[in-house]
């Protein structure tokens, strides 16, 4: 059986095309499992996984926890508000303390870019990055591509626009790497203040007009504006943002084709996306959530099989 080229999932940029293919094929199998009456397999009965969330999360945390439980792994949950991090303990010490209780794998969300990479160099456990600052969120990008593949048959050759706050987004960056690796074309669209100045060097198109972007694409991935990460107002008001970068039904209907709408959540209804769009048949937002569990099961399963060797 083939295996991943990496021992950790720190970011999409550390994966190759075959890795993504393998994760998708494994996820196909697990997606079938989670739709059975008994949604559980005994694969990881001997594996213990710690979910370390140093930053708030609802869906990613639940999705990982569910994926772990569906694989029969033992699960430990930890969030920074309950931890010694606030007492001044270092990240390495915190994680090593948990690992000394015989934990095999760490799923970590952290506010600092590179926290997963840093940890992987200093502790002995398989690390899955569940989002590190504005760096990467690899499982989100994998489930996004997987959902495109499910809806449109293939990712290769598709045109995908990522709309919104690109500057503060790990989802955007991971998606760019994942989509390009699979042969899709990528565009980013948003106010110039929220687009990194040098992003075109990654080989993506940059567009500031939403209509032009939507007319170009097959898929639009709408991102949330991350007000909590902003040190200054990058646009004058939510109202003005929505006027320029919000997707509504009227705009969708006026396009020359029917495009697919995605959103990594949580949605700000009426800001980047209106309710009638979010709930329409063009939207695959809830499919993304379901696929998230299958993708995370696949990633955990594949990394665990490397530990067992």
């Amino acid at each position: 059986m083939s295996e991943l080229s990496v021992n950790h999932l720190l970011g999409i940029k550390y994966l190759n095309k075959q890795d993504i293919q393998l994760i998708f094929e494994t996820a196909d199998h697990f997606k079938e499992v989670i739709n059975r009456p008994i949604k559980k397999v005994p694969s990881l009965r001997d594996i213990t996984i710690a979910n370390l969330f140093f930053e708030n999360s609802t869906r990613t945390k639940l999705s990982f926890e569910l994926a772990e439980k569906r694989l029969s792994a033992d699960v430990l949950n930890f969030s920074s508000s309950q931890s010694s991090v606030k007492k001044g303990e270092t990240l390495i010490d915190t994680v090593n303390n948990i690992l000394s209780m015989k934990v095999d794998m760490v799923v970590m969300r952290h506010p600092n870019p590179g926290a997963g990479v840093f940890l992987s160099k200093h502790v002995k456990a398989s690390i899955i990055n569940a989002g590190d600052g504005a760096h990467e969120h690899p499982t989100q990008a994998l489930l996004d591509s997987y959902s495109i593949r499910e809806k449109l048959g293939d990712v290769k050759g598709k045109k995908v626009v990522i709309v919104g706050d690109i500057l503060h987004s790990r989802v955007a960056l991971s998606n760019i790497f994942a989509l390009q690796l699979q042969g899709a074309q990528v565009m980013v669209c948003g106010p110039k203040t929220l687009i990194p100045k040098y992003i075109d060097k990654l080989g993506v198109k940059v567009e500031t007009n939403l209509r032009t972007a939507l007319n170009w694409c097959d898929v639009a991935n709408m991102l949330r504006v991350q007000n909590e990460r902003m040190d200054i107002s990058y646009f004058p008001s939510t109202r003005e943002y929505t006027q320029q970068f919000g997707v509504n039904k009227e705009l969708l209907n006026s396009l020359n084709k029917e495009i697919t709408i995605m959103h990594p959540g949580p949605i700000n209804r009426g800001v980047e996306i209106t309710s009638d769009v979010a709930d329409s048949k063009q939207s695959i937002i809830l499919d993304q959530v379901q696929n998230g569990v299958a993708i995370r099961m696949a990633v955990i399963y594949l990394l665990a099989s490397k530990i067992k060797q």
């Binding site: 940029k13 590179g114 590190d132 960056l173 990194p196 100045k197 040098y198 060097k201």
Partner: peptide
């Protein structure tokens, strides 16, 4: 420079670090 921690360019963009 704001909260930047490295040079602003393609590497900072790729690493998600503030430039």
């Amino acid at each position: 420079s704001g909260n930047g921690v490295m040079n602003e360019n393609i590497t900072s963009t790729t690493l998600g670090l503030k430039g």
